[in-house]
Every structure is written in C-alpha cells, then in structure tokens.
Design a protein around this nucleic acid. Sequence first.
DNA 1: TCTGGGGTCCTAGGACCC
DNA 2: TCTGGGGTCCTAGGACCC
Length: 421
Amino acid sequence: MTLFALIDCNNFYVSCERIFRPDLLKKPVAVLSNNDGCFISRSNEVKALGIPMGAPLFKYKYLIDQHNVTVFSANFAFYGDISSRIMHLISEIVPACEVYSIDEVFVDLTDVDSPKDTAHHIRQQVLKCVGIPTCVGVGPTQTFAKVANYLAKKRSVYNGVCILEDPQDIEEALKNLPIKEIWGIGRRLSLRLKQVGINTAYDLKKVDPRWMRQHFTVVGERLVQELNGLSCLSLEEQPEPKKSIQVSRSFANDVTEFDELRANLASYATRLGVKLREQGLKTTTLIIYIKTNRFKEGFYQASQVVNLPQAVNDDANLIKACGKALEQIFKPNLLYKKAGIMALELLPASAEQYSLFKEDKISSNKTEKLSEALDKINKKYGRGTIHSAACGIQLTWKDRKEFKSLSYTTSWSELPIVYAR
DNA sequence: TCTGGGGTCCTAGGACCC
DNA sequence: TCTGGGGTCCTAGGACCC
C-alpha cells in the first residue's frame, strides 16, 4: 500500500511578500499579475472580502481602497528563490519527493515509520527556516493526498495536517466533497458529470471505469481508479526536460503597428534564448501567436509554426525565425493560396474585418469569392491593420509525443489501459 | 479605460504511406 | 463506380493544472 503526502504553501505569493513585511501578517494582502491586471494570490483576509482568484483589479478597486488592502506587483524571481529553498529543505527530510509546482510538492511516505509526525515536522521546519505557512494532506494515492490537503486547508480542526488512511474516514470525506474539488476536474467536466447525476467524489468513485473511459476518455478513467485507491500516478523524482517553453505578455493597450509587434517579439525571442540556454536545450520548432482582446467581440487569434533546419538556441536565429513567422501570418498571398478553412485562421484582422470575411465565406467556399471578400476588406480597411492584445512565442520539440497513436480502426473501448505516467 | 503567464495531456481528423 | 487494413505524422483545439 502506497502512501503519499502533498505539502502545499498557503497563499504562496502573499506569504513570500510577508516574509519581509511581518507587519502585514493578519492584514489583507494581494499580489497582482503583469500590468497589475489580475489578482493571482490573496491572503485569507482578501478571500473573505469575496475577491475571486484571477479577478481583474478594476472591478474590485473600491474594496481595495475601502479595506486598505496592500497590493504587490508579482516578483516571480523572488518567489522562485523561496520555492527552491523550501523544496531543498523538504528533500532532506523525506526519502523521495516530486516538485509539482512552485508551491506544491508530493512526497512518498510509504515506508516512513510515523507519517503523521513527519507531516507535522515538515510543516514546522518550513515555517521556522523559510517563514512560509503550509498545509499537508496524506493519502494512499496522489489524488487522495490532494483531497486531504484541501480538507487540511478548509478545516482548522486538522491543525494543518489531514491524514486519510482509514477507509471509513475516506468514505466520509468523499461523500462531502463536491465533484469540482477533485484534482483534474475543472469547470467543464464537473458540469457534464453533474448532468449525469454525479455530484460528489463518492458518486464518481462508484462509476464503472470502462463507462468512464468511453464517455470521459482515459483521463476520466484514471480519476475513478485513483479514487478507488489504485495508484495510477507515481512520483517523478527527476524532473523531465521541458517539452515546451513559452514567453508571452498581454499589452497594456491595443497594439496596432506591425513594427511594434515585431519589436516585442524580438525581445521575447531574446528572453526565450536565455531560458533555452539555461536549461541546456535547443529547439527545432518555433510557434508564434497573436491574440486580440478576448473580452472584446470578435475575438480572434492566429499562429504560425516554423520548423528550423537545425536545432538552435542563439538569439540571432530565434529572432530571425520570429520575423519570418510574423511575416507569414501577415502575408496576403498565403491567404489566397489557402482559401478555405485555413484562410480564416491566418487572416490578420480586427474584429470588424474578421466578421466581414466570415460572412462572405459562409455564402460560398470558392476561392474567387474569398478573393472578392478580401478585396473588399482591403479596400475598406487597407492591408496590414493589426489589433493585438497579446502575443508570444512558444518552442516545442518534435519528439514530444511519448505514445504513438493507436489505430482508430480498432474499437476504442476494448484497448488495454495505457497510463501516461 | 483597465481582464496573467506558463505549462501538460488527450483526441479528432486530414494528408500521406504501403 | 465501388472499394481494405493498418499505420505515421501533423495540426488544431479542448480541457486541465498552478
């Protein structure tokens, strides 16, 4: 029988800021994203005000002023440094661990004599040595460790450590756990599950895994197995090399100049180069993308993949490839050649341009019609009009697929289970 | 007026191959 | 005009995570 623990830092970014501002303990504190756009970390006091995670600042400005909330702009380099101190400390206490995210770590307690004492010891050490409060959840699978952690955070009776080992405790906990709190079930899945009468973790546990696979893919099946105590996920002690690396930013204002877009991309390319070299990696594939403001009507995005003849990690080559990709996106000839579905996706357009084009496309799929539509657009708006709210670059590696696709002529439900990890 | 950034995995479907 | 089986690779998009 396996036993896992999940150590999760409480309100991590806020707690980091409080290390150097002990006067802010028990006071409302929040950390904001790029451009001071959204809340990305909230103290308990701020949560109690009803400000949701990811909410935009402007909607809650009045609460911030009214309750004298201290806000910080995010400082990710600093948070990363605190994180590695914590991870190092924990790795010296336990036999094996997997760093899951900047503020979470799974540890293997299978062969540890007293899991409960160890959990409390970890909590105390992290608080004493680094100054960050944590909660610990313990259970027979990683999914259960997550559940236990959720309870440890939610209910003060646990004193920061919740252990789910006894079958009766587990059943009780699952019956009271809403489906959306399960690790791996987000907004969409929980909606679909509710529609078929699955409302709690306990309901999900009772579902036939094969049925789950048919209707909710292998991901759903794995969830059911984990809730039945069958560990499908194991500890990954050695972090795998990254499969993709990304640099992207939202702009504070709409960008309408091509040159401005290109300049931004070039600076992202440079940052990307640094990341690549730091990790000792090279890339053969580069993807750039642009997106219009997703909160405005006619949201539209475009992307372009560039396959490089050889693996690179130097700034000059990355910038060159970005420029090439950007020009591809905005190249009218390409648009005519690819008239059809693809045309939609490569059209650089404002919301207005986009909808005009779409109307014409629906009336006819013929290339001539599309050309006509384009001419109309060009006459009305001129070529090269750009409205962009965000852009970025992503690098991926060609061999990123671990499993070959299984033949689609074979009946899907009869295939043997293949776990991804 | 103002709405984050960086990842992973899985599936469907088209192009293409023998 | 009808018409197999088995496969790979690639792209796009959906869903999730912190």
